[in-house]
């Protein structure tokens, strides 16, 4: 099991990465994200005619003197964006059995995203389901050491729960939620995400896929679903192509549905370094740039 110290290289690699909000946020606390509120910060945006009820202290007196018109000087506020990393701890994340690569990558991405958000001054927390059905959560905080706290919770968790990502998402009240999951468990997760997005929230879906799932061993194998042991299918040359097509269609469908719902979707194959994946999630390519 990885320890907090084992994230050192990752935290170094994601230093300097920013995770900007995808749209203006509403928050009273000053931060680094563009706020929907126009305030009195030093960053000028525009003038607006004074209306009854405005604070007279915000009138640009010099402009009034020059034009004899009362304008209010508007400036874009910067706000914080509370972020919660929701980690899927279902049994299917413990794959492959020997290395648990999916779970390890999910842990690293969770800690990496928490570090990036924390570096931006955002409150950050984590939520993960325990094997007894309860939710282990670190509420979003900005204090020092919260990343270590997130790492400890993530490390203490084990991929042996029933999943219930939808339940976790509904229990999370923060504006920005990053879902790190393999999408193999919860059918109502998209609905819960849509509700969150409609409510002004921001959802980032990090889809963890094991490279052994993309390219299973080239031999005859009786594949069993670890979450449904009764489901056993024979993977042979005759069924491999259909498997590849079905799995590819499913992943493309998920990406399409989630992007249509307004969420950010990033697929992470387990052979991709965690720092690289964190950078892709936090800093999506500019419009027109090739999507990695």
């Amino acid at each position: 099991m990885p320890t907090d110290a084992s994230y050192g290289a990752l935290l170094d690699a994601v230093r300097g990465v920013h995770w900007p909000a995808r749209r203006a946020v509403v928050s009273a606390v000053a931060g680094t994200h563009r706020s929907k509120q126009r305030g009195t910060s030093a960053e000028f945006t525009e003038y607006r005619l004074y209306r009854q009820g405005d604070d007279p202290r915000r009138i640009d007196w010099r402009l009034l003197a020059r034009s004899d018109r009362a304008y209010i000087r508007l400036a874009t506020d910067r706000a914080v964006l509370p972020t919660t990393i929701v980690l899927d701890s279902s049994v299917s994340m413990a794959f492959p059995m020997a290395t648990r690569e999916k779970w390890r990558r999910a842990q690293e991405i969770a800690v990496g995203l928490a570090a990036v958000a924390h570096a931006d001054g955002d409150p950050v927390g984590v939520a993960v389901a325990g094997d007894d059905g309860d939710i282990r959560m670190v509420p979003p905080r900005t204090r020092r050491g919260v990343v270590s706290e997130v790492a400890r919770v993530v490390d203490a968790a084990d991929p042996d729960s029933a999943g219930e990502m939808g339940k976790l998402l509904r229990a999370t009240r923060t504006k920005r939620i990053a879902l790190i999951t393999d999408m193999l468990d919860d059918d109502d997760l998209l609905i819960a995400a849509k509700v969150h997005i409609v409510g002004g929230g921001e959802v980032h879906l990090v889809h963890i896929v094991a490279k052994e799932e993309v390219d299973p061993p080239r031999r005859t194998m009786l594949a069993a679903d670890p979450e449904r042991p009764a489901l056993q299918r024979l993977l042979v040359d005759a069924t491999r192509r259909e498997y590849d097509e079905a799995f590819g269609r499913w992943r493309a469908g998920i990406a399409r549905e989630w992007r249509s719902a307004g969420a950010s979707y990033t697929e992470v194959i387990t052979d991709e370094p965690a720092a690289h994946a964190v950078r892709r999630i936090a800093e999506p390519p500019a419009y027109g740039a090739p999507r990695l």
């Binding site: 794959f95 594949a223 056993q232 042979v236 069924t239």
Partner: peptide
């Protein structure tokens, strides 16, 4: 021998076809 069942979370995407195989 009869293939030993191996965990594969995405087993559901394998077509459910009656195939008899021995390894």
């Amino acid at each position: 021998s009869r293939p030993v069942a191996e965990p594969l979370p995405t087993a559901r995407f394998i077509p459910d076809r009656a195939i008899h195989a021995r390894t």
